Simulated scan of single mutants.
Amino acid sequence: MSDDLLSRFDVLLVDLDGTLYAGPSAVPGAVEAIATAQDRGVRTSYVTNNASRRPSDVAAHLAELGFPATTEDVRTSSQAGAAMLAAQLPEGARVLVVGTSALAEEVTRRGLRVVDSADGADAVVQGHSPDTGWRNLAEATLAIRQGALWVATNVDPTLPTDRGPMPGNGSMVGVVRIASGAEPQVAGKPAPTLIQEALRASGRERGLVVGDRLDTDIEGGNAAGLPTLVVLTGVSTPREVLEAPGSQRPTYLGANLGALFQPAEDLAPGSRDGWAVGDDLALSGEGDDLDALRALCAVHWAAGGGAARVRAEGDAARAAVDRLGLA
């Protein structure tokens, strides 16, 4: 087997939007990367914070794009949220569902009873639905104020759409948080539950978390105690990687899923041939842009991190800094 990053793992725990596809199209090279991983015996678990769609619908969408995906390969935050409820409630407990029918089905599948009123509700589970309105949030607030257990499938403040970011489940959770004065338990990334559930369901042990967002995918993988790979095909930028707090720093940094087939040591932040980085983040030399970023991360993170001001010395360094958006 090739001595590359993929050879270290037996399952990939991969984010969807921004990592595998962007809008209606697959990210270039993503289908081929996942197919190659499958051919080499490495399973892919598709892990999404989106609680509005059934796992079967997610799998069908992935298959349409060309990914080798079945319903059993998909883990959603609705499944993780329902599992959290079932672990804390007796069978038949009443759960007020704020979300789609897909979330309600997961709750029912766990032996719990779905209700639509705060009266007598033992718990509230809240997931994204474009149809959530004031009355839904009001019932959730009443139930929580009366002592109901509260689980949020995720707290993403925005939801990516082809028209730009829209209010996500976290924005709606924020309304209930303010109105109730309570804090929910969180099932989805960056909490570790969803990723841990996906690893357990995969039947594998050596998992790599792959995603494009530091504040969900990478922080969630770190919280679950797993190695992480950030790819720069979606939300997070090179500057955000460089300035990431400790909880959001990736183990590996790649341009895209092609990084799976590069040597692991080439992807980890650290010194790189061709580039020199001073303690004041003065970058000099020439070479691959991402190698420059990996070298900058190693120095900056060792110094404590935070806001970064990169100073380029020489034409090649200035060009790399400009392309990385670090000027």
Rank of each mutant, 00 (worst) to 15 (best):
A319G: 10
K189F: 07
E105M: 10
V235K: 04
G18R: 15
G221L: 11
A143S: 14
L290P: 15
S7T: 13
P55M: 14
A268K: 13
D17T: 12
P269V: 15
D289S: 14
L85M: 02
S78C: 01
K189D: 06
G164K: 06
L290F: 08
D17P: 07
V175E: 05
R213G: 03
R239W: 03
V11N: 11
L96P: 02
T161E: 00
G23V: 14
S247V: 14
S247T: 06
P190C: 09
V299T: 05
L149W: 01
P55Q: 15
G225F: 06
V175I: 09
W275V: 00
D212I: 13
P263D: 14
S236R: 13
L229P: 02
G147T: 07
V125W: 03
A308F: 02
L89H: 02
L103R: 08
A182C: 11
R53P: 00
L65C: 04
A83V: 11
P192A: 15
I195M: 09
A259G: 08
N154F: 12
A179M: 02
I178L: 13
D17S: 07
L96H: 04
T44P: 14
S52K: 11
V241G: 14
P269D: 03
R94A: 00
A35W: 14
D4S: 03
L232H: 12
E72Y: 03
R40V: 01
V98T: 03
P263T: 12
G220P: 03
A308H: 04
A223Q: 06
L13V: 08
V114R: 01
A187F: 15
T48P: 12
F9T: 06
D289M: 06
E91Q: 10
L260I: 07
P192K: 06
G203L: 05
E72R: 14
G278W: 14
D288S: 04
G120Q: 09
T216K: 10
R311H: 12
R40T: 09
V42D: 05
L208I: 01
D122E: 10
V175G: 14
P165I: 11
S284E: 11
A26N: 08
L89Q: 00
R94H: 03
A118T: 00
P28N: 01
